[in-house]
Amino acid sequence: MLRLDHVAAGYGGSQVLFDLSLEVGPGEVVTLLGRNGMGKTTTVRAIMGLLPSVGGRIWGGEVRIDGAVVSGLPPHRVAQRGLGLVPEGRQVFQTLTVEENLLATAAHRGPGAPRWTLEAVYAVFPRLRERRANPGAKLSGGEQQMVAIGRALMTNPRLLILDEATEGLAPLIRAEIWSVLAGLKAEGQAILLIDKNLSAVLRLADRHTVIEKGRTVWTGTSAALEAAPEIRDTHLHL
């Protein structure tokens, strides 16, 4: 579904990604792991077309969705290929209510009835139903993260991308988010996930891609990563 081949990218004259490759297949949960500053968020921005670019494209390599090159497409065109983004920092619309935040991104591009509607999101996150009339600025960090996930789901994505899914959240909220992601996986939702909670991602994900200084240095299953302490010690600071 999603494939990055030897992608190079950066900001202005500063290169961040040098040789990054990863792929996510239909129904897979794949993580992008690495220490802070290694290029994880830059990778997400490269996928979504959110990087400053030379000639309208990433510097090198290719981003493909369903085999078609999307490098250089504007973000809304990338999203229309079926990608839903939960960005780092949540970025909810502060002056819009919970319900307005969710409706702002609602889209359905497939046949039949959409999987994700307001009622479906409220069923997953009952707290949002209770806060549906509250503006984004009046929500807790955990509630804002629920809105950000619900907003991405309202696009009815084929691939859901989460950048720092549980960073800075209280333990109970983190547990709720992991439960929701496990439910999405059980439904066959493809997910690309960035998070520092290694024990949680090892339980959830099918495969992992580890990056160091903008390069892919390791990929493998959860079982393989658990059996590779040298990878965790060297590249994940555990």
Rank of each mutant, 00 (worst) to 15 (best):
V63G: 03
R109N: 06
V86S: 03
L73F: 11
V217Q: 07
A200D: 14
G136T: 03
E99H: 10
E99G: 13
Q145S: 09
L159C: 08
V16M: 10
I47P: 04
F93Y: 04
V70D: 02
A148M: 07
N36A: 08
G220E: 08
G67C: 01
G141A: 05
A205F: 08
D163V: 02
R64V: 04
R115N: 02
P135I: 15
E130T: 14
V44A: 02
V70L: 00
G49E: 04
V16Q: 08
T105V: 12
V210K: 06
I161P: 03
S14G: 11
G214E: 05
W116I: 04
P114W: 01
L118N: 01
R109W: 06
R127A: 15
L103I: 12
T166Q: 09
H208P: 01
E99T: 11
L159S: 06
L198M: 06
Q94C: 11
G60C: 08
P26C: 10
D206A: 01
A152P: 05
G214F: 06
G214C: 07
N156Y: 00
V29R: 10
E99L: 11
F93S: 04
L2A: 10
G112Y: 03
G136D: 01
V7Y: 05
L102W: 03
A123Y: 05
P74L: 07
V63Q: 05
